[in-house]
Design a protein around this nucleic acid. Structure first.
Lengths: 204, 204
DNA sequence: TTTATTAAACCAACTAGTCTGTTTGAATTA
DNA sequence: TAATTCAAACAGACTAGTTGGTTTAATAAA
């Protein structure tokens, strides 16, 4: 057995993710990655067959972590199943806690890739849409549970309401980055939570 | 009077905007623009000194139109000043009407540029942040008027609530594009409108 | 006759990716 | 224990093509 390549591979992924956040994927050259990591071209192409393969590995990892976080929050709120609205609100609260206090805008590759789609394989882009659809499914379920015991004060479309969570996440990422301040995601998730809180009223 | 260059310049701007939406800015080459417009390199560099100058012109135009639309909606709802909440809701409704029925995702350059910031001059990026801050200012004013006659059911931060509108816009653009369906912005603006509607209650 | 446009050659810097070889270190053998 | 083996991990020069941008001279419209 030769030496351990994992630290190198990890370094490539961490630094290239940061570079993509600054320059976009097309705007990030392999030479830049080499400079930032201090490794050589041989090492890079040993770990990733092509630049696109790196892109795929990065988004795969991101999506995996994203859904993992989602499921963790889902698990953490399982004890609140008795009151489905309380559970929904606490589910959002988990992410408010997670995102609050971030000094820098959250590095979201979803939006980054989405705005230069031709640079990636279809499968790479699918990780993004699948991830969003998983969020949609989870939120739909949580909302359906709520609607068993609560009425909505306004007529709502469940799917669009489910998607609204991802919309708030992604929008907050974009605005945080554009304004170059700290991450605002927690603040905007609070508005989403408020919305849910105000919208539903217990059935009599 | 020499010959009129406006049609050429317009064609460059229209086609390059479409290309940036597909490939990102870095991913869009000048040769691609030439191919798509059918003009030559000489003509391109006659109108734009550099590729970055094109980027600047594009975002300048987008921002100008954006703020113009905002002010038009503001003007259209002036007759509702008597009831500031009614006005705020109608202000949002104007954009719901504007965005509903779009078959393709709305081509928003703000997010596109934001995710490869190193490719642009600071002034170019400033058009984006200034535009967002103009939105913030307008929304803050509308909300302040509302708070004179209404109480908020939940304690809210006006600035973050003002920003929330831009967040919903940008988030809806990202999700629409990522899911490759039709534009979902109108749907999500409806949620924003619902939120405002539910949040405020007339002072006694 | 000023302004806009074509056409094509040209450049230096940069691009992703390849190639050939060298180093590493745990397991195998002596 | 010390020498040997071997595949995984890495080094770095090299290539073929692309990039944004320039130049120049002829030409087409207002």
């Amino acid at each position: 057995m030769g030496r351990d390549g994992k630290p190198t591979r990890d370094k490539i992924m961490i630094e290239s993710k940061a570079l993509i956040f600054e320059n976009g994927f097309s705007g990030t050259s392999i030479d830049q990655i080499l400079q930032r990591t201090g490794i050589t071209k041989g090492a890079f192409f040993y770990h990733f067959k092509t630049k696109r393969a790196l892109a795929k590995a990065l988004i795969q990892e991101s999506a995996k972590e994203d859904i993992l976080h989602m499921n963790e929050a889902l698990e953490k709120t399982k004890h609140l199943q008795g009151d489905p609205l309380e559970r929904l609100l606490q589910f959002i609260q988990e992410f408010i806690d997670m995102m609050s206090g971030l000094s820098e805008p959250f590095n979201c590759l979803y939006a980054s890739y989405t705005y230069e789609p031709s640079q990636f394989d279809q499968k790479t882009l699918q990780y993004i849409s699948e991830s969003m659809l998983t969020w949609r499914g989870t939120m739909e379920q949580l909302l359906m549970e709520v609607l068993k015991e609560y009425n909505a004060k306004t007529e709502i479309d469940i799917q669009s309401m489910a998607d609204h969570t991802v919309v708030v996440f992604e929008g907050a990422f974009v605005v945080s980055k554009a304004l170059k301040g700290k991450d605002l995601t927690a603040d905007h998730l609070k508005h989403l939570k408020n919305y849910f809180q105000l919208l539903f009223i217990k059935k009599t």
